[in-house]
Nucleic acid binder design. Structure first.
Lengths: 340, 340
DNA sequence: ATGAAAGCGCTAACAG
DNA sequence: CTGTTAGCGCTTTCAT
């Protein structure tokens, strides 16, 4: 039997209210009583029933997080950072993986709503084209992570994706690349931002975007990203003139592209330089260590947690949704070092 | 305002109970009423308040999972598999990372207990030597994942670690290695099991364990595993005779060891063959693709979820704790292929 | 400084 | 078939 407020009250010949007050540090309680209660509570290892507390308080001290894939290090690091940041405040995190399936994502969100989490954070896999109204979270505050959604007025925390594209493209240029191609991602805001950054940089650098040098990855879902990157790179290798640098919209894609380039008997970075995005933990252990743009996943998680806690304490409700762009950072490795 | 049973009851001129019954498919309800209720509930997008339901039911339909590090792909895959398996039954998963800190782990477990999760699953980072009594979960059922604990009578689901050691060692032998070394892990049950497997295999194969050929990794925590593996390998390289094969207790460790070997100007696998454990997602993209023993993380997660659901439906309480060993599987790659 | 009463949203047991 | 009563464990007035 798990012990209740009532048990320790009866034990001490007090009322439940008194005990409750002591346990929540309510001021007007006699010092003697307070000590007795604290003592007994510890002895019995009393744990307040959060469900009961939630029922009356109307909040659960629980946050919800939905990510496309927990196995993906970028989302794992975000989840971990959030978890660490909210723990100290007594919050817990309900995490679910949508497996890059928009339907499943909706279902998970509904589940979180039913559980009355105080805030929902979601890295959505809904196509950016369809309006974000699908992800309605009623009056539960919602924070979009990493990927924006049209038509949903929610806070956003994610990478500055335009900057990602500019950083990568400019770097390739500086390494001597003049025919810079781009393997673009699926229809989500991150891919669009990176493409835009690529295009801006190309324009600024006075480079022409050659025919067939921007190819879509075709398959979505990072678990299949390497295959997609491979296929896309094969198409790029068939163009003429051939690219001498490729900015891949993420690391799995870049890894697949690298394989395609090497299989074609070309050298990385000499013949074709590569830059990815995500800065996978083991990027520097690859056959050719991969240059990559770091998205600052930990900072994203930390920042999102901060916003969530603010939203959860519901004082500041009804304020305008804000977007926070975490700066990206290029990590140069061998795959793009042509002038060492 | 989130809508309640009462709202839709008043709306329809019914009692709360009737509505409640309809929503839970209670049999004896008039067909007409049932339809009206269902209709209205959908219109209003009614979501039952799980907190209230939990309070009366005494269960939360929530499971807790504590892992040492969510970033670690092995634990991420387990979390993902559990999440997917329980979702269909209407359960959710509270996940927390203990950061390989025993104190934090205890704290997280307490938090989960306070939240009255139906079952706690924990991949503990408590040292195996200290008795598992620290991880007391009162009368909340507990499932140990991956790592066993002395003195705690809980279900266990994890890899057959002795088999891991035997598989790896035997394989190195078959590849022609005769001076097989082992970098052993920290004081947790998995490391002990793998060491035992190594020793059994050595004995069976008639090999002598040479002086200094079993070295501890020194640092714990997988995030620092590569450093530890590097340091350990450096020590191994200084022994005489030098090993010609190393079984590393996990992949990060093996990756560090590989770096040490290559830095010493030796070749992998020609001079020294390497086998790790964990089968990291990107193991085959390393400089020298790494042979590794796959622990069947997904199967572990699936199986643990099954046990948890059984435990949660509390019918079968008080049965004896059982251990389920998921078979390991060797994945051979270049780092140990000496006879191709 | 302490306690009695009421109620959070829901369900179980029984009555009509 | 439908509704009444009671209560899950806790907190919030409001008396005392």
């Amino acid at each position: 039997m798990t012990i209740r407020l009532k048990d320790i009250a009866q034990d001490l010949g007090l009322s439940v209210v008194t005990v409750s007050k002591v346990l929540r540090n309510h001021p007007d309680i006699g010092d003697a009583t307070r000590k007795r209660v604290l003592q007994r509570a510890k002895e019995l290892n009393y744990q307040p029933n959060l469900a009961a507390r939630s029922l009356v308080a109307g909040r659960t001290w629980t946050l919800g997080l939905v990510v496309p894939d927990l196995l993906h290090p970028f989302f794992a690091v975000i989840a971990k950072a959030i978890s660490a940041a909210i723990r100290r405040q007594g919050y817990s995190l309900l995490i679910s993986s949508s497996d890059e399936d928009p339907e499943l994502e909706m279902q998970e969100i509904r589940q979180l709503l039913a559980r009355r989490v105080d805030v929902i954070m979601v890295a959505s896999c809904q196509s950016a084209a369809e309006s974000g109204e699908r992800v309605g979270t009623q009056n539960t505050p919602c924070i979009l992570i990493d990927r924006r959604l049209q038509g949903l007025d929610a806070d956003f925390v994610g990478t500055n994706d335009v900057q990602v594209g500019e950083l990568a493209t400019t770097h390739l240029f500086e390494q001597g690349c003049r025919r810079i191609a781009h393997i673009r991602g699926p229809d989500v805001s991150t891919a669009a931002g990176r493409l835009e950054g690529y295009e801006r940089a190309m324009a600024r650098l006075g480079l022409k975007r050659l025919a067939g040098h921007v190819v879509p990855i075709g398959v979505s879902g990072d678990h299949r990203g390497a295959e997609g990157g491979h296929a896309a790179a094969v198409r790029l290798l068939a163009t003429s003139p051939r690219p001498d640098g490729i900015f891949c919209f993420n690391d799995p894609c870049a890894i697949g592209a690298m394989r395609a380039v090497l299989e074609a008997g070309l050298r990385v970075p000499r013949d074709i330089a590569l830059v990815g995005c995500g800065n996978f933990p083991y990027s520097d252990l690859l056959r050719v260590p991969l240059s990559s743009v770091d998205q600052g996943g930990e900072a994203i998680g930390r920042y999102a947690a901060g916003v969530a806690l603010k939203l959860a304490s519901k004082t500041a409700r009804q304020r305008k949704a804000k977007a926070e762009l975490i700066p990206a950072r290029l990590v140069v490795r061998e795959s793009s070092s042509r002038r060492s």
